[in-house]
Design a binder for these strands. Sequence first.
DNA 1: ACATTGACCTGAGAGC
DNA 2: TGCTCTCAGGTCAATG
Length: 264
Amino acid sequence: MPELPDVELYKQYLDATSLHKKIEDVEVTTAKILGHVSSRRLQMRLKGHRFQSTKRHGKHLFVALDRPEWLMLHFGMTGRLQYFKRRQKADPHARMIVHFVNDYRLAYISARMLGRIELIRDVKEFVSKKKLGIDALDVSLDFEAFQQLLKNRRGTIKSALMNQAIVAGIGNVYSDGILFRAQIHPDTPVARLGREKLNLLFREMKRVLRTAIRCRVDADRFPRSYLLPHRDRDGQCPRCGRRLATKKVSGRTAYYCTNCQQKN
DNA sequence: ACATTGACCTGAGAGC
DNA sequence: TGCTCTCAGGTCAATG
């Protein structure tokens, strides 16, 4: 579930709580979430050091250490962060807990463990190795570039939006939110979209993601014309009031309005 | 080369 | 009440 806006908020959260503090210890309670790094090595590399700054690319969060090395956090579907005082109990699904010298701790929580933690040397190298496309909110991603990326694609627009190799950061929930605002049926083949529709899609992609960040992904803060607060079973279309439909599109459940998002 | 599908993973909620 | 079943979705390997 953590998609670009969620991870952006995690970044802001980490920035506000956990930078520049000496790390006293690192607890790994579930080594399974570690990628190519062992818990011993992770401990060795973090202990006595500090988090200096953060970067986000798509759904990936990178935390720079005070030496040329980065902690990479990926949240899978149930991942999140929690900063808490030592005497508070950590969430039962905390998989890694960073102890700071100020008696506070930062936990990486993941119930379903679909996320990953890595220690890497270079963000650019990681991004290209993972074959991640440009971040959806990167300012250098303009309409011309977007159109170029979608050129000659064969599948549906929903799966293209969710394809991290094309544009990074959009998952099932936000692809639905974006297609709803652009009034495009999730099953529409990319090739069927004309320049005008594509341009609308591009603008809504940027807008929906930015709005979600500004609203702090809080359903109560979203503008009325957005799908996201209504995206559940027996949810209603905020435009026409009809009951939302669901359909499997490339293995994921798409929520959409059969009236406002017609195939053509 | 690209698109789609199933497996991974576990908790919540439905149904009996 | 308690059991079983299904579904949720990010990613990747396998398949088309």
